[in-house]
């Protein structure tokens, strides 16, 4: 039997940084499993260590207690089986859209490379902008290129660090739909760090809620609704109220507005 790919297990993970000679605990006793093909959001206030957790899964942070396993194996350093989209698109300004998407494809020959790039340009809907430079793109388009670049290596897992955080509200909603479409097409595990409760509910199979100092997981909420989701539906608003309550931001009578 072939094992399912794209599974991350975090076991009893704790991490501290040293700030001014004092250890500062960033993550405390984190336990969570990201299953194959799942879309999971991690939300929490600033400083709750959610980005650090993502960087551990990416392999950019080592030096922690506990375990971080990818498909049963400990994570040692970054690897092409995990793609990343940062909040800043981090495209290389001297490369065109095409060249940026091909950035990590050194191992392919010319023909394969061309094929993979054009496939991904189509996937993120950037036809016609193949030869544009990042400075000529809007924020939303640049982030599409970043997503295409991360997916071009066919990773098992796509990690997204507040990928839509720098976009305006309308572009953001549009890009959430696009992310959902891409996730459904690619069928890979996606783990997204976000500040935005609506975004998390709209996109995720489950939402991991963290709180800060030290960063712990408060609650993991499953979101079983069918897709595409309606942000105005009562179930959506009900879950939203439940999540906001975790941050002590819930209203006392949430349903007064929902009906």
């Amino acid at each position: 039997m072939s094992k399912l790919k794209g599974v991350i297990e975090i076991r009893n993970l704790s991490k501290s940084f040293v700030v001014d000679n004092d250890p500062l605990q960033i993550l405390k006793n984190i336990n969570v499993t990201f299953s194959s093909g799942e879309f999971v959001s991690i939300i929490g206030s600033s400083g709750c260590g959610k980005t650090t957790l993502l960087r551990i899964m990416l392999g950019l942070e080592s030096d922690y207690e506990g375990e971080a396993l990818l498909d049963g194996e400990p994570i040692v350093g970054p690897g092409l089986n995990r793609g990343i989209v940062f909040q800043d698109h981090r495209l290389l300004p001297w490369l065109t859209v095409t060249e940026n998407i091909a950035f990590g494809l050194d191992k392919l020959d010319r023909k394969e490379k061309k094929h993979v790039v054009s496939e991904h340009i189509k996937l993120v809907g950037l036809n016609g902008f193949e030869h544009a430079y990042p400075s000529q793109l809007s924020g939303g388009m640049a982030q599409r290129v970043a997503i295409a670049r991360a997916l071009a290596n066919r990773p098992e897992i796509l990690l997204l660090d507040e990928p839509l955080g720098a976009l305006d509200a309308l572009t953001r909603i549009h890009m959430q739909k696009e992310l959902e479409r891409i996730w459904q097409l690619e069928k890979i595990t996606m783990i997204m760090v976000t500040h935005d409760v609506d975004e998390a509910i709209y996109l995720s199979d489950k939402v991991v809620i963290m709180s800060s100092r030290p960063g712990v997981i408060n609650k993991i909420i499953d979101i079983p609704f069918s897709r595409p989701r309606d942000r105005a539906s009562s179930e959506f608003i009900h879950i939203k109220a439940q999540i906001l309550k975790e941050f002590h931001l819930g209203t006392e009578y949430p349903f007064a507005y929902a009906i």
Binding site: L58, L60, G77, P78, I84, F86, R90, L92, G104
Partner: peptide
């Protein structure tokens, strides 16, 4: 630094 990090991610 952000490009150095990107290079690490892409190995």
């Amino acid at each position: 630094h952000k490009y150095q990090e990107l290079a690490r991610v892409f190995d």
